[in-house]
């Protein structure tokens, strides 16, 4: 009975915050099938971790932790990450919309390609930054200090600018 109540409570939380899982999956996996697979994997890990959630942090902070733990250090995923990334469908293509102007689309395409060249940890940090999480939240999710987060974000911005220039110049 208790188990069933907990499950319903959990499912209602997930229904409300499922975008978050989808965003993490989208950051790390290019094609839809892989994203769906990652979504399911994260969902199961959230369910397994749910009994340890004591409400000491925000629900979204907890969800980001488990989701990023799953995609970054998941035992089963690491070995086939490279293979999974070799897909034909590219998120950067999906980001392009006809209603945006040509220059803007090109910028976004190249910038997204630059993000794909970041390390897994850098991707996590920049994704949380794009989600407008505070430095304290990012630090709590990643287990880093606030200072470390700040410096890392600056470094990633510089790295992205450099990568962007290289890609824009056709390197």
């Amino acid at each position: 009975m208790e188990e069933s109540r907990k499950k319903e409570e959990f499912l209602s939380l997930i229904t409300e915050h499922q975008d978050l899982i989808r965003k993490v999956a989208a950051m790390y996996y290019k094609n839809r099938a892989d994203q769906e697979d990652a979504f399911q994997e994260i969902l199961v890990n959230l369910w397994k971790a749910y009994p340890t959630f004591r409400g000491e942090s925000k629900i979204t902070t907890w969800m980001y932790r488990v989701a990023l733990n799953t995609v970054i250090s998941g035992f089963r995923k690491a070995s086939n990450r490279v293979q999974r990334n070799r897909s034909d469908v590219n998120i950067s293509d999906e980001l392009i919309k006809p209603e945006r102007d040509q220059v803007s689309n090109e910028d976004i395409h190249v910038l997204y390609q630059s993000i794909e060249r970041l390390t897994d940890i850098e991707k996590a940090v920049i994704m949380l930054y794009m989600e407008e999480k505070t430095y304290d939240d990012i630090a709590e999710i990643m287990g880093m200090t606030r200072t470390n987060v700040g410096v890392k974000i600056n470094r990633i911005k510089k790295k992205l600018q450099k990568l962007y220039k290289e890609l824009a110049n056709g390197y």
Partner: peptide, 22 residues
Amino acid sequence: MDIEKLKGAWKSYTNDLRERGS
């Protein structure tokens, strides 16, 4: 190129995700 531009694109993309796969 400003990272803020990507923030906007990311938001738009993730909104699409919500519409598609909720």
